[in-house]
Design a protein around this nucleic acid. Structure first.
Length: 253
DNA sequence: TCTGGGGTCCTAGGACCC
DNA sequence: TCTGGGGTCCTAGGACCC
């Protein structure tokens, strides 16, 4: 890399030429969506995921925004810190309290971001300058499956809770079946009337697939610590540690 | 958003093993 | 064993995303 501030590097130039090549593709996509679905679509073109997402958020609806590499730092400056991927309510609050409101403030910040956001600091700083080397995640591997129900009225009625849990177990098992997966970990989630939320999970050696097995383990978790000691607002159930069901693992051969 | 549902990722503590 | 250090696994909670 060579070139000082404000000077266009050859890297940037070739990147931007590549981005421009995407314009006709984007226009064609929008045209097709409009023709076939009667819908508008907003497309963002940029050199990485972070910027492409911001670009696609930029002129809704029916927009088409390209962020050239040489303009990305300026493009980001006026946006609120919250626009950055990974900055949610809590992090936004922390940054704002430190006087960092816009992404430009982050770019100019001379202090140590680690004191504010811990291990997210390096990533956050890179994002503020539009740098993002995260690879595209093209695998669609599922890591967990879950279901939950918020009750109309808080309840500790065993009949209602059991029915809810068993329906959820059936949902989760159906999805496992559809995806041809088995689970080794079952988790329950509870929320009480005061919004206190807790989870309990158990990992078993033998991967499970059936609704009854999931349901039993969930009941065990609830019973073990007598968690249903007061009315619940929410009850949830999930599985993780997913893999091919035993007996299917060698099916390929 | 006094708060719906389904996900992912990260962190921290404890158990356990060598 | 009134114990050091480390690695790994499991568990629980929280932040965040769509």
């Amino acid at each position: 890399m060579s070139g000082g501030v404000g000077e266009e590097t050859s890297d940037q130039r070739s990147n931007d030429e590549a981005l421009v090549l995407a314009l006709p593709i984007a226009r064609e996509l929008k045209r097709k969506i409009a023709a076939e679905r009667q819908l508008t679509a907003t497309v963002g073109i940029a050199a990485n995921k972070l910027l492409a997402k911001l670009a696609s958020d930029f002129k809704k609806p029916d927009g088409l925004t390209l962020i050239p590499e040489r303009e990305k730092v300026q493009f980001l400056r006026p946006l609120p810190v919250r626009a950055i991927h990974g900055v949610g309510r809590v992090t936004e609050e922390i940054l704002n309290t430190a006087g960092l409101l816009k992404i430009g403030d982050l770019q100019d910040y001379k202090g140590d971001l680690r004191a504010l956001v811990g291990s997210f600091a390096a990533q956050l700083r890179a994002f503020a300058f539009g740098e993002d080397d995260r690879p595209l995640a093209l695998d669609d591997k599922i890591k967990s499956i879950s279901s939950e129900e918020t009750f109309l009225h808080d309840t500790e009625d065993r009949k209602i809770l059991k029915k809810s849990l068993s329906e959820q177990a059936a949902d989760v098992a159906a999805k496992l079946e559809r995806k041809q997966l088995a689970a080794q970990t079952v988790q329950v989630k509870l929320r009480y009337g005061d919004f206190t939320t807790l989870t309990r999970q158990i990992t078993v050696e033998e991967p499970i697939t059936k609704a009854e097995e999931i349901y039993r383990l969930a009941c065990f978790l609830l019973a073990r610590e007598r968690l249903v000691s007061r009315p619940l607002r929410l009850l949830g159930l999930g599985v993780s540690n997913l893999d091919l069901p035993v007996g299917r693992q060698l099916v390929l051969w």
